[in-house]
């Protein structure tokens, strides 16, 4: 599996990477169960069909895609949990599935809140075990612990049994333990799932601060588009195990949503006549109007609205990323158009 010429410029390198699963099929009913018992039937599912990508050192890349697109499978292959069915794969110059100590010492995978923490022990005990496993120097370890406790604000939950911590506390402790050995590559699979908005923001801020200080390569999957928008400039969009976009998030939103949303409050319930093409009123509630306008016309529109002398307040927003990505995968026509665009 190891590639003969190491990709020194790339932290992560994959070429036509794929992974299949043989899933046992079982229809409903007793007769089907008997039939299945005599002759089991399997279905080959191509979770990742062919994925080629290069990720540089210190980049933060967001993996986007609907459920079952192959995001988590990709992360599992990159971290060495899954053996690829085909293709080439290299992370930090290593073949992940070989599980060499040098490789495992430089990566971390966060999947939910039970990945690293010992359920029956307080987090501080897990940190100690982690130190022994990663053979960390006592002085370094103390320094890093203090730093992470401070950054993640977890000093109050270190001596409570993990199972008795709240979801947010567990997640922050999980992050702390995952970062204790200061990994060069961090795989984050839904790091804020189930957390409230405040906690999501805290985690995002922490990750940004951490990245600014230590520059690890971060690969992130999240259903919360705010996570992706806050952390990753570059995104890779996959669907049905195929890469359909790899580039800047801002380019993706521009391509997918050439319009902006303008919310304006007027001192009149009648919208003034403005001669700017392709401006549509999406909704009206009394004197609050929501408009859609092409990006290139937004400036002119805002100026025209202020010039009427009727404007009390005006805000300009992008369409929420959730909606853009949601639309991309919910309607086939959108997806086709998107593929044509990119």
């Amino acid at each position: 599996m190891k590639i003969s010429t190491p990709n020194c410029d790339n932290c992560v390198f994959t070429e036509e990477l794929g992974r299949d699963f043989n899933i046992r099929q079982k229809s409903q009913g007793l007769a089907a169960s008997i039939k299945n018992f005599i002759r089991p039937s399997y279905k080959l599912v191509e979770a990742v069909r062919s994925l080629s990508m290069r990720i540089g050192f210190g980049e933060i890349v967001g993996f986007l895609g609907p459920n079952g697109a192959g995001k988590t499978t990709t992360l599992k292959m990159l971290s060495g949990l899954l053996f690829p069915s085909r293709g080439k794969l290299e992370v930090l110059g290593h073949s992940p599935f070989s599980r060499e100590r040098e490789f495992l010492s430089q990566i971390s995978l966060v999947m939910g809140q039970k990945q690293n923490l010992w359920w029956d022990l307080p987090p501080i005990e897990t940190f100690e075990i982690h130190r022994s496993i990663y053979n960390l120097d006592e002085k370094d370890f103390r320094g890093r612990i203090e730093e992470l406790i401070d950054m993640l604000e977890i000093s109050d939950c270190l001596e409570t049994q993990t199972r008795k911590l709240s979801l947010g506390q567990r997640m922050r402790c999980e992050l702390a333990v995952s970062l204790l050995h200061r990994p060069k590559v961090l795989f984050l699979d839904e790091p804020t799932i189930g957390l409230d908005i405040l906690m999501q923001k805290k985690i995002r801020k922490f990750l940004l601060d951490y990245h600014a200080r230590f520059k690890p390569t971060i690969l992130l999957t999240s259903h919360y588009m705010d996570d992706v928008a806050a952390l990753a400039k570059r995104v890779i969009v996959i669907n049905n195990g195929l890469k359909i976009y790899d580039g800047l998030l801002s380019d993706l939103t521009e391509k997918m949503q050439p319009e902006k949303i303008i919310t304006v409050i007027l001192n009149s319930e009648t919208f003034p006549k403005i001669e700017i093409p392709n401006v549509n009123i999406v909704s009206q509630e009394s004197n609050l109007f929501r408009l859609k306008a092409p990006r290139e016309n937004v400036g002119k529109l805002a100026a025209a609205l202020y010039n009427t002398g009727l404007t009390i307040d005006l805000t300009i927003e992008d369409t929420p990323l959730e909606d853009i990505i949601g639309n991309l995968f919910t309607e086939k026509s959108n997806f086709q158009q998107f593929r044509t665009n990119v």
Partner: peptide, 9 residues
């Protein structure tokens, strides 16, 4: 849960 063991050195 085997995954959490596989990811460690």
């Amino acid at each position: 849960t085997l995954s959490r063991e596989l990811i460690k050195p």
